[in-house]
């Protein structure tokens, strides 16, 4: 395949991908860019934003069975005695290890953990490109949620449910496509504000 052919295939895939994620909730890029400001760096050279000027997201909502049924998708983390900077670093690390899901697995984590962590991987299906285009986005979003729960759970953050509307104000999902960096960083800063903020009054969900 010549260069133009490769480019055409790439364009086709990009088109399919962007179409498939167009319905996903995302924070406002404009608002995020307006508030994202460069700050001093940490020991690792990572820019640490300031919590000054960040508005605490709304976390109060009237719970219903329908909303609670979606708590496996829409949740946030909190840990007592944690500073904003600590929470930001923790969420950044977990985001780094959780993002970039690029492979359709077709298996569930319970199956994957079979054989107590060594042999269960056999159960994972290997998806074709077409299957990936159809199912891949949902699978990647689910995998990202699992990765975040594992990573933040090991850091001993507790997990709390939220309504979808409130969740989308300071969170993002990523299926086939990655959000723009200013959008991601602003959302992570808000998540850190919540994670280091007042103790939630709602029921803890567990891991």
């Amino acid at each position: 395949m010549d260069k133009q052919g490769v480019a055409a295939v790439a364009a086709l895939f990009c088109c399919v991908w962007s179409t498939s994620v167009s319905g996903q909730p995302a924070p406002s890029a404009t608002a995020a860019e307006n508030q994202a400001t460069a700050q001093p760096t940490s020991d690792e050279g990572e820019e640490i934003p300031s919590s000054a000027g960040l508005e605490m997201p709304k976390l109060d909502f009237g719970s219903t069975p329908e909303i609670e049924a979606d708590f496996d998708k829409y949740f946030y983390f909190h840990r007592d005695g944690t500073s904003f900077e600590e929470a930001y670093a923790d969420i950044r690390e977990c985001d780094a290890v959780a993002s970039g899901s690029s492979i359709y697995l077709g298996g569930d984590p319970g199956i994957m953990a079979g054989q107590y962590g060594i042999g269960g991987a056999i159960g994972g299906a290997i998806g074709s490109a077409i299957a990936d285009a159809i199912f891949g986005s949902a699978a990647r979003r689910a995998q990202r949620r699992t990765n975040l729960r594992n990573c933040m759970g090991f850091k001993q953050y507790k997990r709390y449910g939220l309504s979808r509307d409130l969740w989308t104000e300071f969170n993002f999902e990523e299926g086939m496509a990655r959000k723009r960096e200013p959008v991601r960083l602003h959302a992570i800063a808000l998540q850190a504000l919540v994670a280091s903020g007042p103790e939630p009054t709602t029921k803890e969900l567990g891991l």
Binding site: V97, P109, M112, A113, G117, A121, G123, C151, F154
Partner: peptide
């Protein structure tokens, strides 16, 4: 490029 299983990345 497909994967199946878990990474003990942590």
């Amino acid at each position: 490029g497909a994967t199946a299983g878990e990474c003990f990345c942590l």
